[in-house]
Nucleic acid binder design. Sequence first.
DNA 1: TCCTTTATGGTCATCTTGACCACAATTAAA
DNA 2: TTTAATTGTGGTCAAGATGACCATAAAGGA
Lengths: 239, 239
Amino acid sequence: MHEQLNTDQVYVTVDILILAVREGRLQVLLSRRPSPPYAGLWALPGRFVGLSESTEATARSLLQEMLPLRGAYVEQLYTFSDVSRDPRGRVISVSYLVLLSPQQLQSALAAGSGRLRSFAASCAGLSLALDGGDGVILGEGDLAFDHGRIIRTGILRLRGKIDYTDVGFHFLADQQAFALSELQDVFEAVLGKPTDTSNFRRAVLARYEATGRIEQTEKAEKRRRGRPAALYRVIPRDE
Amino acid sequence: MHEQLNTDQVYVTVDILILAVREGRLQVLLSRRPSPPYAGLWALPGRFVGLSESTEATARSLLQEMLPLRGAYVEQLYTFSDVSRDPRGRVISVSYLVLLSPQQLQSALAAGSGRLRSFAASCAGLSLALDGGDGVILGEGDLAFDHGRIIRTGILRLRGKIDYTDVGFHFLADQQAFALSELQDVFEAVLGKPTDTSNFRRAVLARYEATGRIEQTEKAEKRRRGRPAALYRVIPRDE
DNA sequence: TCCTTTATGGTCATCTTGACCACAATTAAA
DNA sequence: TTTAATTGTGGTCAAGATGACCATAAAGGA
């Protein structure tokens, strides 16, 4: 349908940047392009915007195809409009940022075809170095379109807002109790640097428990080796 | 040219939100729409995106038409894409935020036709109440399209970043020395609340003078009534 | 001259932050 | 069974930042 684009009009697509924290690293969901342009390279999921849907609706329906899940965190990221960003024609991309728990990312990978795969993006500093979960290393040249730039933009946005908003919670398993150390793993993966455990705990409890955003549950976890951790749960906000 | 839009394609426009601080209030540049839709209502300057220009280029050329000036601060704001936001058809708007000094805003008003006029936006809380510089009060219903929402989005963005970025400087006259009280006026107008003068001075000097962003000049101002103020200048960054 | 206005510098108590330390509660190893 | 390693939890302490407030300086106007 869209393999040949008219040269006298502007097209609009939505690309979604799906991030999750797995194995201590920030990961991004990519699929391998089956056909030109950029056949064989990795790309963000995307789609042309329909005539009767907002770009946010496009992003959500695109997400719905990959996940049977509702209520994922979706936020508009940035609009990329360089004239030559798509060799097929004049295509403007409105990008969205989506945050998933490891389990949600896993089920997206399971539901997807063989084209779908995820890669850990270890982004020390600003250089985009995609470090594959199975040993594959992705550089900027392995990504289609300007998707490397989109990923960098998204990670910077995330880093900028994780410690004064609630976005970090969306990386935790929905509706499940969590240990503070798990939340700390999320922060460290996003910010790319270690944090003092005691200070992190103090800051989180002051910011979220005092404001009624999280509360302690009765149970304690027993999964790991050391002392069992107290479990907390996120209090859903009705809006 | 664009009075009739095809119903089978998506159009892209750029709308620019031009803000300045004048007379202690945050003001926005609006023009009166000469023709339907929304004829007679106030609207942000806007234009359809050309085939061979990025949206940022569109924003800058649109700005250039109104101002002979280069180097104004331009930042992408948000992309609005509600299906029914434009009665003419399917029009997606990429909005940009532009910050001007009072003098720049004045010259834009002088260069513009009679359709151009500026209004002070006094935005206590979140309710958009446009309080006219010459007594006219604008409400949400006096604005075309979803431009009230764009203005609100821009002001919130500005408030969110003014005290941890350099954006506040762009409201001051370019290349000119300024007194700290002028910068304080800018902050108070943007944030909509008064600030303790002494604490403001301490914070600004710690944040900007210590990092080499501003420096004191030799001269002192003599314009006003009280004690003359020390003048500072912004040190341009080469990037 | 005295009052008003604006600018500038300072105090002081409180809150926040970063770097540590000590101990608790569990599992693994010796 | 003791000991060590591991993870979680609470606390201290000094340095820095913040908010409320006061005092003084330098100008113009009455």
